[in-house]
Design a protein around this nucleic acid. Structure first.
Lengths: 252, 252
DNA sequence: TATTGTGAATGCATTCACAGCC
DNA sequence: GGCTGTGAATGCATTCACAATA
């Protein structure tokens, strides 16, 4: 059972990996920090791209220029996967990519339902349909009668009333809510009734759910707002950072 | 020139507000922490909704149940705006809403360009067109000749080649990139050439930009990934949190 | 009693600095 | 000399606990 432990050093985090060597999982230290985990797909993409270009070895600085993240951060993240990379040389692209994909492959397929098949829902449906990854579009719902029976992302659109039943029937893991704000709470309630515990919400409202359900909201207006905060109003204490395009996300 | 200062107390943050009373802006302490600022729109929405329901006074607990955030956090955030709210009573909805909207109103209009008018770009175009807020859709670009001349979100679609010229002509502040991944870097280069310094990127690639440009990437696949990390694999150290629907975002 | 406001504690991510290798 | 790996320092957000107040 991996968890972070307080050990001798001041920063528990630094020792967390070695602290979990004992659990003897397939890979050495599972408890990679969640933020680092979230960046692994980015590294994987960069490495794949480098691999197709025939690059064999990549330094953290090169990875930095491709991903836009600081070399510091990259090394710290990668060090959590173990000691790949050779000092003075860099990381072997193929090996690193292999290890990362091992970590990423949850060897699990996630079954998605899109609720609300307006312009946005439709776009997401096709996006998922096209994109690789372990995500499968398993159902699409809408409450507009005219749309029912049409197809989106290769799946037949069903009536929203049937969400709870179909969610169980098709083993839906994740509901993507792309309805108008008004309807969002109603459909998420149906999804919860269907046993869904992960919700990705694109409508600009806060959804109330039981505490065993995780909601993640992506609000375009909020993204724009967060972005516009970034405008250099008066050259705010501008420390020279070589490439700071990495934006910090607003935490809800 | 607002900035955080180290003062007597151990936590500089706690004193940051009072430390900047001196700057004498229209509102007392401008330097609200960025994360708190990012949550203000959420509070505003909740308060507006309460106001329309005729609620006069709201406690942090009530706000908590509406927004899904912990009461702790809400009080901490709101305390940064000054001492609104009366102890033992709560916050006056109208007053609080007024103050928050004051903080939010940058009294500025942001002019957007959407680059790439496929399904996603089109959806975003209409989303912005419909949604209120200080964001105006000022241009839409696509590189597919067939689409040029069509309209999206009430704006004529122009050829991507014209991005630099139109960006200057129409004073575009923010570029929204919704192209296929291949084309993204190319169009963002054009946007940068047109003097755009804020980019919201929906394509799943890291964009390389000069350091005066801020890019914020929203990647649906990444969101799904981050969400699927949240699945309770083995009831991880589950501390009883009353309502933790608030998801923490993956930081790039 | 109910609720805000806030100093302090905690936790986590980032950044720094440099030891250890090529 | 260049580059990784990592302990420590820093910074910031969250959480806690409780004094102040209606």
């Amino acid at each position: 059972m991996p968890f972070f432990v307080k050990v001798g050093t001041k920063n528990a985090f630094c020792k967390a990996r070695s602290a979990t060597f004992a659990d003897g999982g397939a890979m050495k230290g599972q408890p990679i920090s969640p933020t680092a985990l979230g960046r692994l797909p980015l590294y994987a993409r960069a490495l794949r791209e480098m691999a197709t270009r025939g690059v064999e070895v990549a330094s953290s600085r090169q990875l930095s220029s491709v991903t836009g993240l600081e070399a510091h951060k990259i090394r710290k993240d990668l060090s959590q996967l173990g000691s790949l990379g050779r000092r003075g040389v860099g990381y072997r692209v193929a090996d690193l990519l292999g290890t990362i994909t091992m970590y990423l492959s949850s060897s699990r397929e996630w079954r998605l339902a899109i609720i609300g098949c307006g312009r946005l829902g439709n776009a997401i449906a096709w996006h998922i349909c096209a994109g690789g990854g372990p995500y499968r579009l398993a159902a699409v719902f809408d409450c507009v009668p005219q749309k029912i029976g049409d197809r989106a992302g290769g799946v037949e659109i069903l009536s929203s009333e049937r969400i709870p039943a179909i969610a169980r029937e098709r083993n839906i893991d994740i509901a993507i809510v792309a309805t108008p704000p008004r309807a969002a709470q109603g459909v998420v309630d149906l999804a919860v009734a269907g046993g869904i515990r992960l919700v990705l919400n694109f409508s600009p409202v806060a959804l109330t759910v039981p505490d065993w359900v995780t909601v993640r909201t992506v609000d375009v207006a909020n993204e724009l707002f967060a972005l516009s905060l970034r405008v250099p109003t008066r050259s705010r204490s501008r420390r020279r950072r070589p490439s700071p395009p990495a934006a910090s996300w607003v935490t809800l």
